[in-house]
Design a protein around this nucleic acid. Sequence first.
DNA 1: TTATGGATATAACGCCGTTATGGATAGCGG
DNA 2: CCGCTATCCATAACGGCGTTATATCCATAA
Lengths: 218, 218
Amino acid sequence: MLWSVSSDRQEPASPVRRRLLDEAARVLAEEGPAALSARRLVKAVGASTMAVYTHFGSMPALVREVMREGVERFLSRVDAVAPGTDPVRELTELCRVYQEFARAEPDVYAVMFGGSSLAGFELTQGDRKMGVALLRHPRDAIRRCIASGRFRADADADLLVRQLFVQMHGLAQLAHAGYILGIYGPEDVLAGLLRDFAVASGDDPEQAARSVRSGLGE
Amino acid sequence: MLWSVSSDRQEPASPVRRRLLDEAARVLAEEGPAALSARRLVKAVGASTMAVYTHFGSMPALVREVMREGVERFLSRVDAVAPGTDPVRELTELCRVYQEFARAEPDVYAVMFGGSSLAGFELTQGDRKMGVALLRHPRDAIRRCIASGRFRADADADLLVRQLFVQMHGLAQLAHAGYILGIYGPEDVLAGLLRDFAVASGDDPEQAARSVRSGLGE
DNA sequence: TTATGGATATAACGCCGTTATGGATAGCGG
DNA sequence: CCGCTATCCATAACGGCGTTATATCCATAA
């Protein structure tokens, strides 16, 4: 598919916008939220402060764009999880991918779900709904767990997916804050949570443990 | 008990310090972290910016003091949970108190556990250890669940309390961020989490549901 | 060619945390 | 009582922040 013949890029006349976004993502990843400032970004790309306002309108709006691109990366990871014959294993893989993203981009994750304000940026109700929409994948996996008889027939996928969301978020945040210490680390807690989630939902303890081990990559 | 005879107060010569801390807690509770600034605090108490530095040394140090007092309020709530004959109910009550505190003082909670920087304040390793020390109460409750036969004899209280911590933190943060929406609210998720936690730990499903309902206040 | 509109640089405004300086004051040894 | 010292505090400033008003480019449309 030849798609380079003409102007397929959406912003051909403004590489400044792209460079600002890339620099923002870089600073956020390498030095954290405190290092993110308009003056620093424009200095790095050799522009003046007006660049932020002509291309984004405000710093919170720039942060929103950074977050939006982070969500896309998150989705591409989730979509890469292949369905298989074991729905409990698939659910485990989704959770593993969730934790991997939160660990790879902790500050983007914190903006998405952690209530981090980050230069005055605040979540809108639309942002939250988009976040909740990410629960569709695991909810469907839970439904397959029920349909396949692994989970109880009267289990409630909508309630269970919220419980799972809470567990994944709590683990991601506490692990990032350095609060999972002592004899058990984040991996141990993740394995325990997933096994107990399946068991409480009706799965056989041995089978649940096998599926979780398999989904976490042995 | 007559305790007003002489100087019981710890800071009799510096009401400025106390008034700054109270104003900081008030602003944090009523207008959120973004409204907290040294200049605003000193203006409210009728002092100059130097007051912050003579009494605290820096804004992060003032925030640390606010957090420290928040931890004390948290502990006083936890200590108010009376032990009873039903350890699962007691565990549930501890979790209810946890959620009540996080809901009553969400910004103090976010500083304690949420990784919120709040005016440049950062957690020290000592702060984290102090936070982990708060897990002693629920861990002991879990041990009583095991000892009483409600939980499996080979259940691991140290791992389970971390799993419970993750769940309570995740629920507190997502509820505060407005992410628990749709047909099920935070109370439903809390009840489901606690019931499933007990069931996966070996408790009888009916008995678990009864204890959780009772511990959440019917 | 001229006109128009968008991107940009400059400089400023009002915040912020922090600090250097100097003045007030309280306690205390003489 | 005097003078010394130490503490608290007000003033003013510094550099950095997000943001904006203004003016200047410059490419494109008429």
